[in-house]
Design a protein around this nucleic acid. Structure first.
Lengths: 221, 221
DNA sequence: CGTTGCTTTTACACTTTCTTAACACCACGA
DNA sequence: TCGTGGTGTTAAGAAAGTGTAAAAGCAACG
């Protein structure tokens, strides 16, 4: 059975969500603001979090950031706003998906299932992209089953690209995930590491394609 | 059923509009000048407002501004030809679209439907217009599920048009959103980027329609 | 103290994108 | 018919972004 944490200031909304989730066999706990939400998350260790962006006091995005400092729990964003920019910001800060109020219960449950499964596969021990295999457990990269030597930064960078293989990853997203919580500005150095990775991947491995002005994409060879 | 408010000083025009709207199931109320219009809007809380710009007494623009101080109701402007400057001013002050007198009922009803349609926010952060899908998170544009390559400026431009799909967007509004916070004057270059976008959208995608003197509108193919 | 391995900085050639400018076109009114 | 304003189209230079190599910091370790 999965544990779900609801962070929303409206009691009515919490009750609705609570009913829906419990009828699906979730064990539910609730929090009325961001501060409490973080405490509950730390204490109950939920398997999934439903987070309202329109929280009083601490901003929903802020809650998400703080949560992501120590937890990989799947987060589903709830919001009434249809501001695209905020959605993107939430997703870039580690939210897993997004539903807009008002929403149907069927849609909500479907999303929950998807993000929980995705998180499960993501934390699986390895990522495979064509001839490349990343063993996250042993921090090892295999190309055609032969180990290749990657520095820690290179491994983290390749991991981000491989997780979203085939899709564009923004430079900001890369920097946020690889150089998380650091002060220096690695925007210049990113190009160097990409260059190193490309050499080590060689002809046989996946290609790192640049999308000028946007970011990079890992393409199966 | 939707409630519509007509603000127009010509009784003949009010009667015509009234008939058309009621035949489509709208509940209609009327006002003969701006002052009354604002009162009616406050009292009846209409779902959509049809506002004539050529009002006696209070200027139509003035009515719009006052209305926008407390209401987000969709507003369709009615105006005569050769009032481009005023139309632009209305659109930039929060009007949602306009029709030029004389107009066909089909066109009028189509515009009403578009501006009343709430923008549904779909899974994660994406905007869908016919065969075109913009994935904001991954900065990727898909046409018939095949990715097309857009430069950063083109993507931003298409995003603005797609957000207001079916509605008209002023040149100023476009420039403000795409070239936010820049010094150079891109009013000339806008045409070039529109041209590039049209080529990349091809025959299958949505069309970018120009409204001379006012702006552009993205129309589903 | 120097070595080693990794990261960052610096520099410059190269590519892509943006802006600018020029001109063709079309609709409209004088 | 011509002129005018707004738009569509194209090409070329300017600006921004990227690839690459080499050197300079920086910690850990013997």
């Amino acid at each position: 059975m999965s544990k779900a944490l609801i962070i929303d200031d409206e009691q009515q909304m919490r009750r609705l969500l609570c009913m829906v989730l419990e009828s699906r066999g979730y064990e539910v706990c609730e929090a009325a603001d961001g501060q409490l939400g973080l405490q509950e998350a730390a204490f109950h260790r939920p398997d999934v979090v439903l987070l309202d962006l329109g929280l009083p006091g601490m901003n929903g995005i802020e809650v998400l950031k703080r949560l992501r400092e120590w937890s990989d729990v799947p987060v589903l964003i709830l919001s009434v706003r249809d501001q695209e920019a905020i959605k993107v910001e939430a997703l870039e800060n580690g939210a897993d998906d997004y539903v807009t109020k008002p929403f149907g219960t069927a849609e909500l449950l479907a999303r929950l299932t998807v993000i929980q499964r995705r998180r499960f596969t993501r934390q699986s021990a390895e990522i495979v992209v064509g001839a490349l295999k990343l063993d996250l457990l042993h921090h090892e990269a295999l190309l055609d089953d032969a180990p290749i030597k990657l520095t820690p930064t290179e491994f983290a960078l390749l991991k981000v690209l491989a997780e979203y293989a085939g899709r564009i990853v923004t430079q900001n997203q890369i920097i946020k995930q690889v150089w998380a919580g650091q002060t220096s500005d690695p925007s210049e150095g990113l190009r160097v590491h990409i260059n190193h990775l490309r050499k080590k991947l060689g002809e046989t491995g996946p290609r790192i394609v640049n999308e000028p002005g946007i970011g990079y994409r890992l393409e199966e060879a």
